[in-house]
């Protein structure tokens, strides 16, 4: 996105007016102080709704200043956590404290819930691991170079299975495994490559090797039913159906190139 456009928009928007709050939002007609109780002003309508301990804080703790005028410039108050609170992590974990903490207390008593709101919810075996298994000793990898790629944590596991000679060097673990256990193999992600759990091929196969992956030692060698197992893909019928298709050849890779989603009309 062009920064220039944003800055232009920013400058044009300067015509906006700052509307001060009416005095009655906080004060009574009897006297300036004490403030009205309960306060008529709804802080939830600002960019910083008050929750938890913030509801107990005195207004002046955030709306500071050396004069009454400055303290009444409410919109000047910062809304970032680190504008009031010291970040003991020195921003190593980012500036969004609410990812882990809440306004009730800095102590994290239900951190699991926070993880569920990330793109890597703790399911299956991951739910049962001590934090340090992924995040390192003393949480040195809360974020940093920690990614959602399986091999980022399972480097050793991958190296071990590759060394046996019975496993490919493919690092996309999720295409054959899930987060619950290494075995049994879970091919649920096959639909991202070729739909077999949905569409025309749902329920039409019995095992990986029986119909498609004719070479159990090389799963990249597949057949689109050209081995005679799938009756609708016999050569004469298929040739007849493709007599108007240029560069047509009766070959599995060519089938896949045009029919990657498994549909006849692709």
């Amino acid at each position: 996105m062009s920064y220039t456009a944003i800055i232009l928009m920013f400058l044009l928007a300067q015509q906006s007016q700052l509307t001060d709050l009416p005095c009655s939002s906080c004060h009574t007609s009897d006297n300036w102080t004490p403030l009205a109780s309960p306060l008529p002003f709804n802080h939830d309508q600002t960019l910083f709704p008050l929750r938890g301990r913030h509801t107990k804080a005195a207004c002046i703790q955030c709306h500071g200043g050396t004069t009454v005028t400055e303290r009444h410039r409410f919109s000047a108050a910062e809304t970032e956590c680190n504008s009031c609170h010291m970040d003991i992590h020195y921003s190593d974990f980012g500036e969004d404290c609410q990812r882990c903490h809440d306004t009730e207390s800095w102590v994290m008593d239900n951190w699991w819930r926070k993880h569920d709101l990330t793109l890597f919810p703790l399911t299956g075996a991951h739910r049962l691991l001590p934090c340090g298994d992924c995040h390192g000793a003393q949480f040195s990898r809360i974020t940093g170079n920690l990614t959602t790629d399986c091999y980022d944590c399972h480097t050793q596991t991958l190296a071990e299975v590759i060394s046996t000679g019975d496993h490919t060097e493919n690092t996309d673990c999720i295409f054959c495994h899930n987060t619950r256990a290494w075995s049994p193999v879970d091919m649920s992600h096959h639909d991202y490559l070729f739909p077999i759990y949905s569409g025309n091929h749902k329920g039409t196969w019995t095992s990986c090797e029986a119909e498609c992956h004719i070479d159990p030692n090389d799963y990249s060698n597949f057949s689109c039913g050209l081995n005679g197992v799938c009756h609708e893909h016999n050569e004469s019928q298929t040739n007849s159906e493709h007599d108007d298709v240029g560069n047509y050849v009766y070959e599995s890779q060519a089938c896949f190139n045009c029919h990657s989603s498994g549909g006849g009309g692709d």
């Binding site: 008593d109 239900n110 699991w112 819930r113 569920d116 919810p121 399911t123 299956g124 739910r127 999720i174 899930n178 987060t179 619950r180 879970d186 091919m187 649920s188 992600h189 096959h190 639909d191 991202y192 759990y197 949905s198």
Partner: peptide, 23 residues
């Protein structure tokens, strides 16, 4: 109370996870 229903690939609802918390 938290309920999590998930699946792998393009599936959903294959597994469920229930959590009760009180504090």
């Amino acid at each position: 109370y938290e309920y999590y229903s998930y699946g792998f690939g393009k599936q959903i609802g294959k597994y469920t996870q229930h959590t009760i918390t009180t504090g």
